[in-house]
Design a protein around this nucleic acid. Sequence first.
RNA 1: GGCGCGGUGGCAGAAUGGUGAUGCAACGGACUGCAAAUCCGUGAAUCCGGGUUCGAUUCCCGGCCGUGCCUCCA
Length: 470
Amino acid sequence: MTLSLYNTLLRTKEAFAPIDRTHVKLYVCGPTVYDYAHIGNARTFSAFDLLARLLKHLYPKVTYARNITDVDDKIIERSNQSGEPIDSVTARTTAQFHADMDDLGLLRPDIEPRATRHIGDMIAMIEALIAKGFAYAAEGHALFNVPSMSDYGKLSRRSQDELIAGARVEVAPYKKSPADFVLWKPAKEGEPGWDSPWGKGRPGWHIECSAMTAAHLGQVFDIHGGGLDLIFPHHENEIAQSRCAHGTQVMANVWMHSGFLTIAGDKMSKSLGNFYTVRELLDEFPGEALRLAILSAHYRQPLDFTKDKVELSKKKLDRWYRLFKENSGVFNFANSAVLDKHDGKDLDPDFLNALCDDLNTPEAIKEIDRLVNEAYAENSSTTALALAMRKVKVAANLMGFLTQEPEAWFKWQPAGASGLDDAAVEQAIADRLAARKAKNFAEADRIRNDLAAQGIILEDGPKGTTWKRG
RNA sequence: GGCGCGGUGGCAGAAUGGUGAUGCAACGGACUGCAAAUCCGUGAAUCCGGGUUCGAUUCCCGGCCGUGCCUCCA
């Protein structure tokens, strides 16, 4: 089983070769905690969550780090606008982020370093860059001198001339070169700051990731991921800082970037007002349905997000879960709650191959559909059916699906829904059953239509009537 | 201007130098009091023009259309 990954550095897929086969190290650029996570964040983090799950299946030990950026101009701006203290903004937003990602069904990263707890590491790295001649101090700032690095721009494939010619912003007078970027910036009156050799201030945007990866994963590690928009300047500058500070040829061997998301065909943007927060979508749809919709396109392809797609994904999961609801006597869902790499013998090879081909999730989902179809069609013996169901669950679990009790899945309802409670539904079903026994089909259908109007869908099966919220 | 991505059935969305998956939708049938679910079956697609090739949706060139980035942005 060969894992191949698309490497932005090479612009091609290549076989993944870990630095240490016994311990794979992955870093993903996490959120800046000043506002709710939006659906675009959810896409990126869902893609790398899946990568982490796959790596953990394939390798004995994986360290997955995803940072929290808790010092940033946007956070300061938000605090100034609302009057809420910065610590409160970041603590509240971080908690919200965790709740959102949990409900989406993502695994927590193994390490979640916070920028404010690595200020000392950042200062030390900047000092090293200055000592080696790659950076300089000017007017309370520390800046990285881009021309000092001969092969700057390899990741984004930009020449330094292009950068200077394309610069949109006015160049600060203290910069030696227009392309130079900030490592440390002075704090204005009332802004948070830390003492440093360049005065009281705060780190630039890029240095935190360089410092935190070095602290937690080492100077050179396996995979660095993030959204497509981070290629330039963020990742390019991380690479410059880390390589120059450490004297290494690479910062990470593989650089992976998730594609963008549009909303019903338009670029998602706050000014257009066409963005969704993860929370508002989770209020309307189950997290698994939202994540399946996100993963139904390959992570590097553009994804056009619509609520219709989430509805379709929810219906697909209904079908997957129904298999287990209808055959609960054959396969004990609860007792199979944790299906991990020890269940590899029942993991479908075509499914795993799809994921190993640069996370081809549409192909992998297709294979789960195939396994589900095979299970539904299995009628030779209960043993064969149980095995077929087990194969479905092992595969789905690897992607983080089929993680809840089928009964709970079908009874899920949107936040704040004021529909019938479970007992009222059960009572209506009992009334309908009585009507059916009396051959009073008009009354039975009236009850069914009545429930349907309230979002309750009934299904008469050989073992009685079951229901779901639709 | 520079760098990049994409154009596959009604919709979504993979793959492939040689019969183009899968899901949803549609249609026919089984089952059902009727439905739903499930099962069996049917129809339906590679933007345009060149080139390479025995053969191109796939590789190369050009065009058209759409779209992203170029120091706030997952």
